[in-house]
Design a protein around this nucleic acid. Structure first.
Lengths: 166, 166
DNA sequence: GTGGCATCGGTGACGTGTCAACCATTTCCC
DNA sequence: GGGAAATGGTTGACACGTCACCGATGCCAC
């Protein structure tokens, strides 16, 4: 027989529940705002902004996937849709014919630049501006500890190595 | 152009990025563990555990949706799938023929009880145990502030303070 | 009662994410 | 050089969530 598991204490339960609810509501609100302001989904904005921060607004597809922590197949599907909307374009790579690059189109760049200000505002209204600087610091530290732990992948339980993550 | 938007400072950027990455990786890991250990999705476990905490393991469908912060249609679709797998059962309601209840089946209860210990363990390993008690307290406070803000703003349905179920 | 209206829950269509399989190219190594 | 394995990227089938809409029931004013 296995021993009694270490259930969560009330305080721990409270922390976990608060996190789950915040995640649900905050994600929904920021998504709603983004879509109402710019007609973009969260995923669209992520792709656009990662490309906007890349050199010459372009990036190799699998490197983009790694940076975004997305699966290649998810990114491929999403790029197909964004390409059809004219936001990005695919280009081959001369040095290695397996590779492909994605580039922001002029329209994609314009869309990103128009979307950024209201999006930042939404993030402020619904999250950042609700926190004191001290809370922000603690929160960032927590997030980084968890990300470090999960990226290390040294988990004996980890079924799949987490890829990417410089 | 209107006035220059208030971009995020470096510290704010760091907080927001840490949150987004933590959310992505933590959700993926806990989901993977849950699925590997019990063959359940996050959503399955949420439904089962909410039902397990309900009186007589049953709940009116729309009340369940409210407690879980799910849309009714999402819950309805998901219950259909879980019903086909024999985890839950739908039942009519005598007092109000519009209403319907959902109940844990014996199999659903067994599945929940088997799934809970490894799930709690996964939450501990990947999140709770990585935080000091002080960090947990700050984190819970932050989550509750954000949830309060978002609940106040939108839903006329979420009048009552969402009591955390335990 | 009866008509108007809100509420409850379900349905179908559609967009998106996942998983496994796939093809093309490159790299490794004998 | 040549075959096996590794890598980059795409595709198809399926599960899931959302949205708009529906039928059914309860509620209320008149």
């Amino acid at each position: 027989m296995t021993s009694e598991p270490r259930w969560l204490t009330d305080a721990e339960q409270r922390t976990w529940q608060a996190y789950r609810r915040m995640q649900l509501l905050l994600g929904a609100q920021v998504s709603r705002d983004l879509n109402a302001d710019s007609g973009l989904s969260d995923a669209d904005y992520d792709v656009l902004s990662h490309l906007g921060l890349s050199d010459r607004n372009r990036c190799r597809i699998s490197e983009l996937a790694d940076r975004m922590l997305w699966s290649r197949s998810r990114l491929s599907h999403h790029l197909t849709r964004m390409q059809q909307r004219g936001l990005v374009a695919r280009e081959g790579c001369a040095s290695d014919a397996r590779c492909a690059e994605v580039v922001l189109t002029a329209d994609g760049l314009r869309t990103l630049e128009a979307a950024a200000p209201p999006h930042v505002d939404s993030v402020r209204r619904n999250f950042i501006d609700l926190l004191t600087p001290e809370q922000q610091a603690v929160f960032a530290e927590i997030g980084e500890v968890v990300v470090r732990h999960l990226s290390a992948g040294a988990e004996p339980r980890a079924k799949k190595p987490v890829r990417g993550t410089a």
